[in-house]
Amino acid sequence: MGKVKTPYLLLLPGFAFLFTFFILPIANLAQTSTQTPIAGGDTGQYEQTFRLKNYIDAFVENKEQFGRSFLYALIATALALMIAYPLAYAIAFKAGKMKNVLLVLVVAPFFTSFLLRTIAWKQILGEKGFIVPTLRSLGILSEGSTLTSTAFAVVMGMTYNFLPFMTLPLYASIDRIDPRTLEASGDLYANGFTTFRKVTLPLSMPGVVAGTLLTFIPAAGDYVNAAILGSPSTKMIGNVIESRYFKVVDYPTAAALSFTLMAAILILVTIYIRKAGTEELV
């Protein structure tokens, strides 16, 4: 009997942590999302009226920011995948003794603040950085144009900040591929592209799925990059939620937007996993 209870007892600390810091806050967020202002009350005073129309109103008012958030997150995820896949492949198969050094360099950005890394990109893309003068000298960028406060800057910042989340799962998946399978493909007269398409990519798909999820989910809710590198025209849904909470003090709308974002991401992730889930690829 004691042996049967032991696993459940070991789960108690983790469950207590999740209950305290996840389930309870989610429940509080849910009840806040259906509140309405108290008639004649001060700013920030609300009462529970179970007004579900808060969700519709919040979405209709901010549907542009929702669309922009998912678009930016999708582009950043695609760019991160294009950068991270060759990098992870090179580390796994070509790095040799430098493998551990390169892995440290991949995670090195985590040693500094997310905020500082984003501010650094503002300087890199600013007038005093090396990119803008170079593009102007090549005639690609006009004298009056800038890269900061643009959608380009926001997407580049997101791509950079979330790149390790894409690289590490890809490396873990590619590193498990037996090199002999690639050699066998060559023995069967497959060229490099065919080997990649028929062998390497399918075997690394668990890492692709994990990496894209770990990149897309936080990118969709991000607000730091848009706040520092963007402008009012590039505002994402995370910026709206932050503003509603701390500036407008509109807690019900902020809570409704948070739940709507969470539900939208959950639906998209479920569809994605069903279409490209690892259960069909390993």
Rank of each mutant, 00 (worst) to 15 (best):
K3S: 11
V4H: 05
K5E: 13
P7L: 07
P7G: 06
P7K: 08
L10V: 11
L12C: 08
L12H: 02
L12W: 03
G14A: 04
L18C: 09
F19T: 15
T20S: 14
F22V: 15
L24R: 11
T32S: 15
P37A: 10
P37I: 10
I38D: 02
D42N: 13
Y46P: 11
E47Y: 07
T49G: 00
F50W: 15
F50D: 05
R51C: 10
L52C: 04
A58Q: 09
N62D: 04
F66W: 04
F66D: 02
S69T: 09
F70K: 07
F70A: 07
L71E: 06
L74K: 06
I75A: 05
T77D: 07
A78D: 03
A78E: 02
L79Q: 00
A95G: 09
A95T: 09
A95R: 02
A95I: 05
K97F: 14
M98F: 11
M98W: 12
N100R: 14
N100Y: 08
N100T: 12
V104G: 12
L105F: 13
L105S: 02
A108C: 08
P109I: 06
T112A: 10
L116N: 06
T118A: 01
A120L: 05
K122P: 06
K122D: 05
Q123K: 07
L125S: 05
G126T: 01
P133R: 11
R136M: 13
S145W: 11
S145C: 03
T148H: 04
T148F: 02
S149P: 05
S149M: 12
A151M: 12
A151C: 01
F152Y: 11
G157Q: 01
G157A: 02
M158L: 15
N161M: 13
P164Q: 09
M166R: 01
T167R: 01
T167A: 15
T167Q: 05
T167P: 05
L168S: 06
L170T: 07
S173Y: 03
I174Y: 01
D175E: 15
D175V: 12
R176D: 10
I177L: 08
I177A: 02
D178R: 07
D178H: 06
D178L: 01
D178S: 12
P179N: 14
R180S: 12
T181I: 12
E183Y: 07
A184P: 05
A190N: 07
T194C: 01
T195Y: 02
T200G: 03
L201H: 04
P202M: 04
L203I: 03
P206E: 01
G207I: 06
G211H: 06
L214G: 04
L214P: 03
T215C: 15
F216P: 00
A219G: 05
A220F: 09
A220W: 10
D222G: 01
N225Y: 04
N225P: 00
I228A: 00
G230T: 07
G230W: 05
P232T: 08
P232D: 11
T234N: 08
T234R: 06
T234C: 00
K235N: 09
I237P: 12
G238Y: 01
G238Q: 03
N239C: 00
I241G: 02
S243N: 14
D250W: 02
P252Y: 14
P252S: 07
L261P: 09
L268E: 09
V269N: 07
Y272K: 10
Y272W: 14
Y272M: 14
I273R: 10
I273M: 10
K275F: 13
L281S: 08
V282I: 11
V282D: 13
